[in-house]
Nucleic acid binder design. Structure first.
Lengths: 170, 170
DNA sequence: CTTGGAATGTCAACAAGGCTGACTTAAACT
DNA sequence: AGTTTAAGTCAGCCTTGTTGACATTCCAAG
């Protein structure tokens, strides 16, 4: 497993794309690309008292308006204390609204306010601009491959969450 | 820009892969996939007193043995104070060796010790296993697209760093 | 030979954002 | 009535990022 070409055992057909060298390039590509991926929203957020955690909350509340705290917790994969700290500031700053559930009054349903939607737009415009440029440069076939590999890299639980979100879109 | 189909202006040929919906799916795929990407090494590291920052340092020192602190700083994109804290623990724990430069004695050249290489192996075996599974599931064409999109998503400076590393490999 | 600047390291302080654990409140379920 | 669940809160801890100030060492240019 540490001989430098563990998966380079070429078995008839070309599995050269599975060499440790190829895998390592993939790993480094993920590392550098993720930095670019977050760079633009981070710049916007650093001017305010917000960080990446706020962005994530805003993104998914916008994505699924009325989502419950528990729901968001599962998607974000953090503790409720961590999320609560973020939500508290967003609510008190008037970007997020928390409504008591009608059916189950224990639940809180989360919505973006007008101000919240405004910030969401600024953040996702910036992030989409980069993604759009990358997609356009690479072309539709590359984009399909990109999505396919990313999906295969997720934990199965996140894969389900991702698919659910995907299917709820439009 | 916030009308929900800003880039869906279908201009003759099919640019449907550039709709805001497609871009958002790409954004969410990056988010969920990156979690999976770091999950396995994170689990190993949490047993020790180390975190993701230690992993990154170990990875790139292994990748380019003898690299200087400044070099590493540029690749990792953190402040020297941040990196120094990480390096200090790695050096005092005997995982990394810091040698004074022969030509320029101000520089410190960094190398993994045997113990360091051992941990590096454990971490990258875990990370590669997931990447390998994802690559295999998706197939070579998808992998090519994956790499192409990621590369286009990097800042140009990181793109250069990535290419340099890529070309130094094997 | 001296001095300026570069590379490195260190100290201190701070903030964001993770975490655990303990506990409360209110509502719902059984 | 008693238990479970959803949410929130308090306190404290850790990692990892940040600034700013400052010391050391040493190369290189004047």
């Amino acid at each position: 497993m540490a001989d430098g070409r563990s998966s380079a055992a070429i078995s008839g057909e070309s599995l050269l794309f599975l060499t440790d060298e190829q895998l390592r390039q993939g790993i480094e590509a993920m590392f550098f690309a993720y930095r670019g991926f977050t760079a633009d929203p981070d710049r916007i957020l650093s001017d305010m008292a917000y960080g990446r955690a706020h962005h994530r909350a805003i993104h998914f509340i916008n994505r699924a308006p009325g989502t419950t705290v528990n729901n968001l917790l599962n998607i974000l994969g953090v503790t409720k204390q961590s999320l609560n700290r973020v939500l508290r500031t967003l609510i008190s700053d008037g970007l997020v609204e928390s409504r008591v559930g009608r059916i189950d009054k224990r639940e809180r349903h989360l919505y973006l306010t007008d101000d919240g939607r405004l910030l969401e737009g600024r953040l996702s415009d910036a992030q989409r601009a980069r993604m759009r440029a990358a997609f356009r440069d690479a072309g539709p076939e590359a984009v399909a491959g990109f999505r396919q590999v990313l999906e295969a890299m997720m934990d199965s639980e996140m894969q389900r969450a991702y698919t659910r979100l995907k299917e709820s879109g439009t």
